[in-house]
Design a protein around this nucleic acid. Structure first.
Length: 205
DNA sequence: CGACCGATTGACT
DNA sequence: GTCAATCGGTCGG
């Protein structure tokens, strides 16, 4: 595929579909982060869907609050939250305005800007293990310089956005239960690319 | 207001 | 395998 196709920004309509349709479609898409002259790019390899009022594990389960209000914006915005007193995680907001649903980005494969990603992650990252840069939701936010300042960012803007990326076939997609939650455990709403070494570690169930 | 805990990570036994 | 870090959100009193 020509590079200009892979790097064409996803349109608003992509984000307005049902969340469980969008989640697996996000696999293979490129996450692009621009800061000044720097451009960081990673291919999305693992995601989880959070279905608002239908989902006790979702921040939006009990309705809109100051913290989760971005989840209720129109699809195609970035919802960033702070957790464990030290980590940020980012989500792609989905569906129409007023519906509190989103897809958590759990892991990406670094494609461009590896050195600045290493710098953002700090010296604890071994150079021998490139996957340690972005194989977890908080790791990828740190590597991409995503913080509360990017909460509410429009994915049709130029600060952070998604592009068409690489084609991923249905046969390459594995569906499992979600990770690290205490309610809604049974829902098979985690999706990742089979065999990709940048997928986060799966704990025993 | 106090207590509990989290869509995690990294260090350590 | 276990566990501390570290603080905002949430809920009960």
């Amino acid at each position: 595929m020509p590079s200009r196709m892979r790097h064409s920004k996803l349109p608003r309509t992509f984000y307005l579909k049902p969340t469980l349709t969008i989640a697996p479609e996000l696999l293979g898409k490129y996450l692009v982060r621009r800061t000044g002259r720097m451009e960081l790019v990673g291919k999305i390899v693992e995601v989880e869907a959070y279905l608002g009022e239908l989902d006790p594990a979702s921040h939006a389960y009990r309705g809109k609050t100051k913290r989760n209000e971005v989840m209720f914006w129109q699809g195609g915005h970035l919802y960033v939250y702070f957790t464990y007193g030290m980590h940020y995680c980012c989500n792609v907001v989905t569906e129409e305005e007023g519906i509190g649903r989103a897809v958590l980005l759990r892991a990406v494969e670094p494609l461009r800007g590896i050195d600045p990603m290493k710098k953002n992650r700090g010296t604890t990252v071994s150079p021998a293990h490139r996957e340690d840069l972005t194989n977890g939701p908080a790791k990828l936010c740190q590597a991409f310089g995503i913080t509360e300042l990017q909460n509410g960012a429009d994915l049709l803007g130029n600060e952070v956005f998604l592009t068409k990326g690489d084609r991923v076939t249905a046969e390459e997609i594995i569906t499992t239960k979600r990770i690290g939650i205490s309610s809604g455990r049974e829902k098979p709403w985690r999706f990742f690319i089979k065999g990709n070494r940048f997928v986060s570690k799966t704990p025993r169930i």
